[in-house]
Design a binder for these strands. Structure first.
Length: 497
RNA sequence: GGUAUCGUGGCCGAGUGGUUAGGCUCAGCUCUGCAAAAGCUGCUACAGCGGUUCGAAUCCGCUCGAUACCUCCA
């Protein structure tokens, strides 16, 4: 059996995963900025790292998964008007900043639950860690890698780059950054264009502000993640995740700050998920092409042909490797919906099949094939979380399951052991690791009772060859979104759309 | 402009130097009162041009194209 290997953005190659503390994993993922509604693009990292979290746990690790909530207004470090997004929108909507933040945090959590993402171990907020951030900035100043100018604090990138591998993560060249011709306010108070803010002086109109040794202000972009990750995971931790677009400058800055403050590089493995595109373009605020989660689930958006169930989105994301771009289209999502239904029905069938009794498979080749596909799942997950391949394996097994049920494959074709392996593989990978769920869950036993009655009546109608009546029952139920299927041997089953 | 990444059959998308990815769609067949589902069969691709190699979609080079980051962004 293989061991877990993951692609480390820092080294640009797949590496074997070895935790710092045996049996434990520290995982930090950049969380949402709760100044607005989450959209489809946000779904990707949180589903991606939910898989990472789930799989590490499956491997037996005790995972501390920290995902922050960015609720402080330091979005516009070098912003033209130094305006705070949260503060600005709060004025427009006549809300308190924290009210707005609360609203979008709740909405975010709602979305995460819909996606069946496990909750992180700790979800720290930036506003709740101002002290830690100030302490860290003071430390960096004391070590001579930051300087104060008129109430703001900047990190001295040139000095840092002279002694440390700055820009290794993002593969950039410092000289190129210095040549940026952009003119930004506040740029002139920095010693160097490449320097970034650790703390910003708050202008008069800035609502979110905190007292600091340098006057009233707010923390810079990158410091929150460094302060909170080190607080909860230590100066050095295992995995840091986030979207590719955060590599520079966000993660690069995190490395620089933490390295100076703690005397060591903070992260062993950097993982970055790729973007979701729409018509070939990144889905993002700047492009004005976002589809919010609420719109996605309700279908209320001009480009959506229908509503899409959260599980369809999850499946669609898992069918692509996390480091590839994923292009949105109605066609792709509709294909995912059908595929998910198919694999889930096979799983339901599998759960109800009775195990063969013999330890001897009558079809050795098939038995071997099943074992191979089942065992391949672990190897594929170990190969940088290849969820697409895992799903492909399960799809290879689906016809075998359906074949056993349909009678095309003899019940004793597989050995009892292989059959058990097949069942645990589906349960483990489909449910536990990929975190998928059925599209519709009927927990209403009374409805079930009624449907069993209707099914009984239809069975009787068919027995007396009263097909007018039996078709009428089926058609009317179908009109209500309840689909009847005539099984072999006169049995019937139903699914609710 | 700089730096990366990528370019796979009707669509979406894995991938290893030599073997069928998989899903969806489409066509035919089987089962079935009909339907649906399911099973079986078919549709054989890897941007272009060179090179390395016994052999490359997979390695190297060039060309073309696309996207991302360089500015808030998952």
């Amino acid at each position: 059996m293989s061991s877990l290997h993951l692609y480390n953005s820092f080294s640009r190659q797949k590496e074997e995963f070895k935790p710092i503390t045996p049996g434990h994993v520290g995982l930090y993922v950049c969380g949402p900025t709760v100044s607005g509604e989450s959209h489809l693009g946000h779904a990707r990292p949180y589903i991606t790292f939910d898989i990472v979290n789930r799989y590490l746990q499956h491997l037996g690790y005790k995972v501390r998964y920290v995902r922050n909530i960015t609720d402080a207004g330091h979005f516009e470090e070098e912003g033209r008007e130094a305006e705070d997004k949260v503060a600005k929108k709060a004025i427009l909507e006549l809300l308190e900043p924290m009210e707005l933040v609360h609203k979008y945090t709740e909405l975010f959590h709602w979305g995460m639950r819909k996606f069946n993402n496990l909750s992180p171990s700790i979800e720290p907020t930036a506003t709740g860690h101002i002290i830690e951030q100030i302490n860290m900035i003071e430390d960096i100043i004391a070590k001579g890698y930051a300087y104060v100018v008129d109430g703001s604090v900047y990190f001295d990138v040139k000095k840092y780059a002279a002694g440390y591998p700055y820009l290794k993560l993002s593969g950039r060249v410092l000289e190129d950054l210095l040549e940026t011709t952009r003119e930004l306010e506040g740029q002139n108070e920095k010693r160097d264009k490449a320097d970034f803010a650790l703390w910003k002086k708050a202008p008069e109109e800035h609502i979110m502000r905190w007292k600091s040794p340098w006057g009233e202000g707010f923390p810079g972009w990158h410091i929150e993640c460094s302060a909170m990750s080190s607080k909860y995971l230590g100066k050095q931790f295992d995995i840091h995740g986030g979207g590719m677009d955060l590599q520079f400058p966000h993660h690069e800055s995190e490395i620089a700050q933490s390295t100076i403050a703690h005397g060591c590089a903070p992260v062993n493995y950097w993982m970055h998920n790729n973007m979701i595109t729409i018509d070939g373009r990144k889905m993002g605020k700047s492009y004005n092409n976002v589809i919010k989660l609420t719109e996605l689930f309700s279908g209320e958006h001009p480009i959506l042909e229908q509503a899409y169930h959260p599980m369809v989105i999850r499946f669609y994301i898992l069918q692509t490797h996390y480091r590839s771009t994923l292009d949105f289209s109605n066609e792709a999502l509709q294909a995912s919906e059908k595929a998910l239904k198919r694999i889930w029905e096979a799983y339901e069938v599998l759960k109800k099949l009775t195990s063969p009794e013999s330890e001897t498979a009558t079809d050795k080749d098939l038995d071997k094939k099943v074992q191979d596909f089942c065992n391949a799942c672990a190897d594929d997950m170990n190969d940088d979380f290849n969820t697409a391949k895992v799903l492909a394996n399960l799809f290879e097994l689906a016809p075998i399951i359906n074949g056993i049920k349909g009678g095309q494959i003899k019940p004793d074709a597989l050995s009892a052991t292989t059959f058990a392996l097949l069942q645990t593989t589906f349960k483990t990978y489909l449910e536990d690791i990929l975190g998928l769920q059925p599209l519709q869950q009927n927990n209403d036993s009374k409805l079930d009772d009624v449907l069993q009655l209707v099914i009984e009546m239809r069975k009787e109608a068919r027995l007396r060859k009263d097909y007018t009546a039996s078709d009428k029952i089926r058609d009317m139920l179908a009109a209500s979104g309840i689909l009847l299927k005539d099984e072999k041997g006169g049995e019937m089953s139903y699914t609710i759309e």
